[in-house]
Design a protein around this nucleic acid. Structure first.
Lengths: 111, 111
DNA sequence: CCGAATCCAATATGATACTG
DNA sequence: CAGTATCATATTGGATTCGG
């Protein structure tokens, strides 16, 4: 066998890498809203229950720093700003989908 | 079409359910260590880089409250304590596996 | 409308020491 | 070995206000 399972330490490091990117309550909900086509600040805020402007603002910056979204300024009157998903952001969909599945099962009277 | 995609609000709620269970830097690393067969406090602490006793203790309690692990007291001399995975905990492996995959790709010079 | 700025509370994480 | 206690810092989340 040349192919072997990853060492546990590697796996831990890899999940922690992922956790560091999708960290917190809000980044995945924001990405989900954006996957559904929403691209503007106020629309995101209306779409995501209980998120405040401060948190949304900070999280959008984090997502931009992680190269998952792009902030595009349109020179209209007044200026409008669009948040766009990068192609890279779509590599996260398998993770998100599994989390949706699990959340659905979990809330469905298990335990 | 009777079959339709989940509404976005449902998806958000479901990921948030999942996030609430696996939240923080440590719960998945702990589960990973336990998946690999480690079951005792000191062994977990040695196996998970940089975790402190305080954090490990708290996280184990959280995991127990979430029914992902069980705390078993063996009446030996001295008393030994074993943390066991529940069958329920294994429903999380698809999520964890996707996160490992993504973390591996992400750290591998993407962007 | 799109946020930034400010202030504050709550939680998470960390370092260290100590107990049974 | 298996934690608890204490203290400190960092990060997150929330409320409100303000400016372009």
């Amino acid at each position: 066998m040349t192919k072997e399972v990853s060492k546990i330490a590697d796996k831990i490091s890899q999940v922690q890498t992922t956790l560091a990117v999708i960290n917190g309550k809000w980044k995945l909900p924001i990405l989900l809203s954006m996957y559904s086509g929403i691209s503007r600040f106020r629309d995101l805020q209306r779409n995501i229950p209980n998120i405040t402007t401060r948190v949304l603002s900070k999280e959008l910056k984090d997502l931009e720093a992680s190269k998952l979204i792009l902030r595009v300024v349109h020179d209209t009157h007044p200026i409008s700003i669009e948040y766009k998903l990068t192609t890279y952001s779509f590599t996260l969909t398998p993770v998100v989908d599994e989390m949706i599945k699990w959340g659905k099962q979990h809330s469905k009277g298990n335990l």
